[in-house]
Amino acid sequence: MTTLLDVSALVRRFGGITAVNKIDLAVTAGEFVSIIGPNGAGKTTLFNLISGLDRPDSGTVQFAGETVTGLAPDHIAARGLARTFQHGRVFANLTVRENVLIGAHTRQRAARWPALPIGAALEFVAALIRPTWMRDEQELLDQEVRDILGIFGDRLLPRIDDPAHSLSYANRRRVEIARALALKPKLLLLDEPTAGMNQTETAEMKALIGELKRRGQTILLIEHKLDLVMQLSDRVVVMDDGIKIAEGPPQVVRHDPAVIEAYLGHPTLGAAEKVVAAEAS
């Protein structure tokens, strides 16, 4: 198996706080890895560092065999990395179809022309002339968008031409995932895909992510709903205060005292032991 993502000794400080502290993380192609940890543990900062939205103070990120540390996010995306955002960031005034098409941006021929003034100018001219190949390409992408939206049953397809701001919160989260899939990512980063969803919606999202896993999609997931994490993950990484405090198969991590401590508090007064004892009984 090839290592798709290799993060080593990554550090990011904000003022006096070290949000990400010497994190090592590797993801193999086809693997499903989850990152859990309390609020403020540095999980989203880690995602920002991997996807290029933020630059690390030290450490490296390797993706698909290349060092991508410090590259701009659009370059990293073009190499096959897609992510969703914790609070859902859809393009509010674009329709569902257009939102998903943006996901396919880097796969459009004209958009790949080198960013020199010439490439950009040609892209502009092509947009005005709209040659046959461009129309064919757009038609193909359009079909692809329908296929992707089909994964969500009839949640999104009937609303394909509605602007994203008119969608329910859960539907906006789905659009985000659809947009990420349109990039045909080698690695998919999901940041709390079920945040703010009710139980039915969460169950549906769990089934969907499970389906993506079955299709062989490599996924790195941040999630608070631990039953989802425990059922789907091949491996779980636990972060607290910017540090990786545990890593391993779900069932092992679940019973790791350090993890219980991170979630329930420091066992100074022996409380966590009591809880563990209570659970065992």
Binding site: L53, P73, D74, L94, A111
Partner: peptide, 15 residues
Amino acid sequence: RAIRDDDVAARTYGI
């Protein structure tokens, strides 16, 4: 329009 609506998300999708 995507850049206008959310430039961070746009960059994340390769724009």
